[in-house]
Deep mutational scan, measured.
Amino acid sequence: DRYEFNINGVHFTIDDAEEELIKLIEELLKRGARAEEIEEVIRRWER
């Protein structure tokens, strides 16, 4: 599934997002994580 979200006006799209990654990102968003922090999480996840 495609997952899309915005952080401070920056648009992100993840194709074939796994449910666990989506939950992790949503938790980070609730905590007010910065875009750079979430980008790093996504990079690590994709390795």
Score class of each variant (00 low, 15 high):
8 N>M: 05
27 E>V: 13
15 D>E: 14
11 H>L: 13
19 E>V: 12
37 E>L: 07
34 R>K: 14
26 E>C: 06
44 R>H: 15
44 R>F: 13
26 E>S: 06
9 G>L: 03
44 R>P: 01
39 E>A: 11
25 I>H: 00
26 E>G: 07
17 A>Q: 05
43 R>L: 13
26 E>H: 08
15 D>T: 08
47 R>D: 13
23 K>A: 13
14 I>C: 02
42 I>N: 02
36 E>S: 09
7 I>P: 00
33 A>W: 04
15 D>F: 14
15 D>P: 10
13 T>L: 13
18 E>T: 14
24 L>R: 12
8 N>F: 03
3 Y>T: 02
4 E>C: 05
23 K>Y: 11
16 D>A: 14
42 I>C: 03
29 L>S: 04
8 N>K: 03
20 E>G: 14
9 G>Y: 01
20 E>A: 10
47 R>K: 14
3 Y>S: 00
9 G>Q: 02
2 R>L: 08
33 A>C: 06
34 R>I: 13
7 I>L: 07
5 F>D: 01
15 D>G: 03
39 E>F: 15
26 E>N: 07
12 F>Y: 13
25 I>S: 00
7 I>M: 04
10 V>R: 04
17 A>F: 05
11 H>V: 13
13 T>M: 12
6 N>M: 14
11 H>S: 11
31 R>D: 10
47 R>Y: 06
16 D>N: 15
35 A>C: 06
37 E>P: 00
22 I>N: 01
41 V>K: 05
46 E>M: 06
45 W>M: 05
19 E>A: 08
20 E>W: 10
6 N>V: 15
5 F>Y: 04
40 E>M: 09
35 A>R: 06
2 R>P: 11
1 D>R: 15
4 E>N: 03
35 A>D: 03
32 G>T: 05
2 R>M: 09
31 R>W: 06
41 V>G: 03
6 N>P: 02
20 E>L: 07
36 E>M: 10
32 G>A: 08
21 L>A: 01
3 Y>I: 02
6 N>F: 13
28 L>D: 01
19 E>F: 11
30 K>Y: 12
2 R>W: 06
43 R>V: 12
17 A>G: 05
38 I>M: 07
19 E>T: 10
38 I>F: 12
19 E>M: 09
8 N>V: 02
27 E>A: 12
29 L>Y: 04
39 E>Y: 14
2 R>Q: 08
34 R>F: 14
16 D>G: 15
